[in-house]
Structure formats: C-alpha cells, structure tokens
Amino acid sequence: MKKLIVLGLSALFLFTLFIGCEDDPETEEAPVTATALYVLNSGGQSISVVDLETGTVYNNVATVGTWPNQLVFKAGKLYCVNTGSNNIQIFDVDDFAATPEVIDLGSGHNPQNMVFVDDDITYVSCSLSESVVKVNVTTKAVLEEIDAGVGCTGIALAGGKIYASNTAYNAATWGYGPGTVTVINAATDAVSSTIDVALNPFSVGVAPDGLVHVVCTGDYWSAWGKVMVVNPATDTVVDSVVTLGSPGNIAFSEADDMAFLTIWGMGCLTYNTETLAMVNDTSNYFLGKGGTGAAADGDGNIFVSVWDDDQVVQLDKDGTVIATFNVGDKPAALALKVE
C-alpha cells in the first residue's frame, strides 16, 4: 500500500513536471484597410492598428525596438524611429507579420524623429550625436550626417529646408540651455542658419499656411510653454503663442485652421493657426487626460493617445469625444493612413 502511495506521488510529480505545455502565441493580424490609425505602444513595444472604417482595433500586430519614439506613414510603408535601438524599422502595412527592414544608424545617435523630403530621402534628428542624419530608405544607406545642436529632437520640412530643434538639455544640471533651431538646406545638406527660440524646443510642425511652428515646452518647472512661429522664407521668428503648461507634440487640422498641442495629463491645448489666439488654454484644455501623441485628419478629427489609460481618443475640434479605442500598453505616438 505504501509503495502504491509512493508510486502514485511520483507519477503525480512527473505529471506536474511535464504539464508545462507552451501557450499558444497571442498575436493579432490586422487586415488591409483603406484608412487606418497606427498607434505606437511604447510600453508594449508594439504597434496597434485602428481600422477607422469599422472602429476595430488590432493590438500588438508588430513589435518595435527599444525606446520607440515616432511613427511615420509614407508611401504605403510605416516607419518607426527607435531611439534606444538606434535604428528605423520599416513595416509593410499590408503584412505586419513580415519581418521589418531595419536601417541601422549606429550606436551613439539616439534618433528621435524623422521627416521625408520625398519617398526615398528622410532626415532624422539625433539627440545624442547632436546631428541630423540623411538616409535613403530604399537603399537603407546613411548618406550624410549634419551637425545640429545639443539635444536635437524635433524635425520638420518647410520650403525645401529642414528645421531641427535643439533642446540643449543638460543632464548634469537637469536643466536646459538656450533653445535653437538648426536650418538645413535639403538640396545641399548645409546648415544655412541657426534660429534662437524659447526654452526646450521639443517638437516642430508646419502649419497649413507653410509657417514653421516650434513647440517650446519649457523646463516643466518654472518656464512654461510657448510656440515660436518661424517664417521659412526669412528663417526668422515672426510671432509666438504663449500656451503655458508644458506642451509636447503638435498636430494641425487644415479643415479648421487649428493647432493641437498635446500636454501630459491634461489632453490638448488648441490655438488658431491664422490668428495665433489660444482657443483652449490651460484653463479650458480639452480631454482632461492623456496627451502624448496627436494626429489630425482632413475631416476635422483629432486623435490623442492617452498614455495612462492605454487608449486613443477621437475628438472633434471642440473637444467632443467621438470614439475611444483601447490600444496597447502606453501609447505614445500616432500616424494616419488616409487613401
């Protein structure tokens, strides 16, 4: 009897020893869609796809690199800038299961954002190397590296020139030096000028009227947000908008002449790009949460990612919530595909 007990227990042990069958993979395949919102989930290091026609969300359809920072949709492909991995991944949006191509920028660059001048050529702002890297995405070759400033972060294209913002972040003092924008002639890759702007120019966008809007976040501490407006014809600051708060990214709605500034934990500040008057300031910001990535389509819809709630919220220009999408972990950046 005792030996039976022992044998039984041994069998139980062996059973539990090998009960450990592997779970099935938990991945979703996104269908090919005409319009889509691509969401970069920085926590889950993944991409979610929101089918804007059906409202269906496909989470974790692809895996991105370390410290992913930006998604860009261009000519049928989706580009992800991975700061920690020092590379750019290129995804086929019709087949996310396919292994993405990778453009390696080399150690010590910390790429932040990219902007295309055509379907092949892109410029990438790199904070650690304090430079802008010119890349051919077809050949995956680094063509040029152009010196910019300390903490080169934001980047935009206007009037055939690249505008790269330099935050001048000083890790030793946890503070910021004077903010600047390096202007690069995209035809010659030469630095044509450097423009002084306000503290911590974190991102750059081009308004529908062609003016460059430089979002200066401030130091999160004592200096608050300001948008500096640069005329690309003269490369001078022609105006500014005092936003207050600590705005991060910017998106423009051509339909409404509106600019949307993401602001952490609050949602969005907005201003009119023609009058430069604040519409929603720190006293009446909309959404009231989130505020990492933002994207606007041509129909007056604004999409804002909510980091804490793992959601993307679709709003109209007045801040009315139209839809809420549950996406992956810690959504940080958005890109729109509109056909």
Binding site: G20, E22, D23, P25, E26, T27, N41, G43, G44, Q45, S46, N60, A62, T63, D310, G328, D329
Partner: peptide
C-alpha cells in the same frame, strides 16, 4: 533547468 516563456512588458505582448 527549464524555464518557460516570460513576458517582458505588463501588457504581455507576445512579440517581445
């Protein structure tokens, strides 16, 4: 020693 699959992010993204 055998160690089974481990997730590396709180949302359990299989890809990473």
């Amino acid at each position: 020693s055998y160690i089974s699959r481990r997730f590396t992010d709180p949302s359990n993204n299989w890809g990473i």
